[in-house]
Simulated assay, not measured.
Amino acid sequence: MICPHCEQNLLRKQRTGNRCSFCKRDYALDPKTNPLGLNDLRVRRVTAALTDGGRIRIVPEQLWYALSRKRLRDSEFGQGCLGGAFALGAFVAFVSFVAEAPVLLLASAALLLVGSGIAVARAVGVGAGVPRVSREDFAAQVLGAWRRTYGSLPPGVLDTSGSTHGPAVPAVAPGAAGTAGVLICRDRAVVAFLDAAGLLARHGLASARSPEEVRAVPSSGPVLVLHDVDAERELFVRRVRETLPGRTVVDAAPPLRTLRARPNAVPYRDPGRKPDAEAMRLLSGLGTLTPEELKWLGKGWRYPLVGLSPARLLAVVDRVAGQVTRRVDEDRRRAAALGFLTWPGPAGPGPVGGP
């Protein structure tokens, strides 16, 4: 690996204890011991790309997904066994011919059959899409080592470890006449990301986790729903509309069809979160998904919001929020012009010569 400080190419014996033997400085991540195969230089490159060179700030969960993309895309099923099975099978076949022991051909055939099975499984994607390091473990296994070495998180990554984004968080811009609408998002990391970018305040949006919490917000404006693009998302949007009759409810997440058509969009799957039979029945009844999309969702595949490009996520939510709150803003401006939303200022001095 390359030392992130002096850029020397280090052999394994030259970097024991995560310390460069040339410049004597510590580094955080060694690709031989890190479960994601990371090194400090790669983390810096990926962070710089996600933050657009420092223009925007991201949350740790977005960095987790970006650093996991390669492992999610590639199948690791039988990794290390595939080559071994073929090599051993070829060796046994060679020995059987040299020793004139036909019985060994059976063992060779079995080994080659195992290798072929692993190759086919990898080709069809068995093992792909499952994170090597979970979202919950990323902070300890990667960011913890980084913080111990450098004293802080990578530049541009928000420290959200001590933050609490409670329900119905008002985020109205200074001087705004009130809350223009509500954003429902159950992923607190995404809310923290949007809030840090000033998007909630810019559009006068409060944040809530559920349609029940929306009722606590003093606003009758539109409700934006932001959810991972998965099977649960489709049903959650329907529940929000049923729970809040009369309110304008807008699905602010990108459509599944759009994401699946993008070659650089990498989904993941959680075998423990597959939709059950009832959920699949309800999804099928919506009539908005193709049979192929239903089959894909039924296997537990999803596009998490933290997996979308941070800049693109900001642009999409900003555009949707601007469209649905524009009418509210126009109404508020007209009301303010009529004086309904302004208090009279203190009386000034009367005209010269007046009382």
Rank of each mutant, 00 (worst) to 15 (best):
G298T: 09
K295I: 12
S134D: 09
V217E: 09
R202I: 12
R326C: 09
A197L: 08
A253D: 09
P349K: 09
N39D: 13
V46Y: 07
E7Q: 14
A279M: 12
A85Q: 09
P31C: 04
A93R: 13
G156R: 08
P211M: 04
E61Y: 03
P174M: 10
G272N: 15
N9D: 13
V182C: 04
P310K: 04
L63E: 00
E293W: 05
P102S: 06
G162C: 15
N264Q: 13
L41H: 05
E292A: 12
A279I: 02
N264W: 09
P255E: 06
P35N: 14
G54L: 12
R73V: 05
A107I: 14
L112M: 10
E136M: 07
P310T: 02
S134K: 11
P154I: 04
S210Y: 14
V240Q: 07
D331K: 03
Q14G: 10
G175W: 03
D187A: 03
A128T: 12
S96R: 08
A28R: 09
N264A: 14
G339L: 14
G300I: 06
C23G: 03
K295M: 07
A197E: 12
L256S: 05
C81N: 15
P218K: 11
P255Y: 01
V130G: 05
R122N: 13
T51W: 01
G151V: 06
N264C: 13
G221L: 01
P263F: 07
R269F: 07
V237W: 06
E234Q: 09
L10H: 07
V46C: 00
L224W: 01
A121E: 12
E100N: 12
L72E: 03
F22V: 15
R312S: 11
R122L: 12
A49H: 15
M280F: 02
V157I: 03
L286R: 11
D228L: 03
C23A: 10
T51G: 05
G117D: 15
T248G: 09
A139H: 06
P245Y: 10
L158N: 02
W146E: 00
R327L: 02
D318Y: 01
L104A: 12
L308S: 04
A119T: 15
N39G: 15
D187T: 10
V240T: 04
D159Q: 06
V46G: 03
R15H: 07
G300D: 07
R262T: 01
L297H: 00
C20S: 04
W146I: 00
G204W: 08
R73I: 00
S163N: 14
F340A: 11
V190Y: 00
